[in-house]
C-alpha cells in the first residue's frame, strides 16, 4: 500500500494521464453518440499530451527560454540543468496540431453523417442502415 502511495506521490502526473486515457477510451468505445465519441477521442489525445509534457519536467528548472536573452554574450555558459527538457514540448506542439486536425476532420465527417441520416445516435443510424 505504501509503495502504491509513494508511487502515486512521486508520479501522480502519470497516474492522472493513465486515468484520462482510460476515460477517453471508454467514452470512445462505449458511448453511442458520435459527438461524445469524438470528445472521448480528444480526451485520450490530450492525455497523451499530458504524458509527454510530464516527461519534460525537471524539478528546479524553468521554461526553456534562455536567460541571457540576445545570445551574443555567450560567455556565461548555459547549464542544461537549469531548463526543462524542450523536446517533449516540441513534440506536443505537433501532437496538439494533429489532434486539432483530427478533430476538425472528425467533425466534418460527423456533419456529413448527420446530413445523411439526420441523427448522430449510432443505434438510430444502424436501424436506418438495417432498414435499407
Amino acid at each position: 500500500m505504501e509503495a502504491i502511495l509513494s508511487s502515486f506521490l512521486t508520479k501522480y502526473n502519470y497516474w492522472v494521464f493513465i486515468g484520462l486515457v482510460m476515460i477517453g477510451l471508454y467514452a470512445l468505445i462505449a458511448k453511442r453518440n458520435l459527438v461524445k465519441k469524438i470528445i472521448g477521442m480528444n480526451i485520450a489525445q490530450t492525455a497523451v499530451i499530458l504524458f509527454y509534457v510530464s516527461i519534460g519536467a525537471k524539478q528546479g528548472s524553468t521554461i526553456p527560454i534562455l536567460d541571457s536573452s540576445h545570445g551574443h554574450d555567450a560567455h556565461h555558459a548555459v547549464q542544461a540543468i537549469d531548463y526543462i527538457n524542450p523536446l517533449p514540448h516540441v513534440l506536443m506542439l505537433t501532437a496538439i496540431v494533429v489532434s486539432v486536425a483530427t478533430l476538425g476532420v472528425a467533425l466534418a465527417l460527423a456533419i456529413k453523417v448527420y446530413q445523411q441520416y439526420g441523427t448522430l445516435e449510432e443505434d438510430e443510424i444502424q436501424a436506418q442502415i438495417d432498414k435499407t
Binding site: T102, L109, Q116
Partner: peptide, 13 residues
C-alpha cells in the same frame, strides 16, 4: 462517411 468516421476513431486510437 460513417465508415470513415469509425476508421478515424480506430485509426486515432
Amino acid at each position: 462517411s460513417l465508415s470513415s468516421l469509425n476508421y478515424l476513431f480506430m485509426g486515432t486510437v
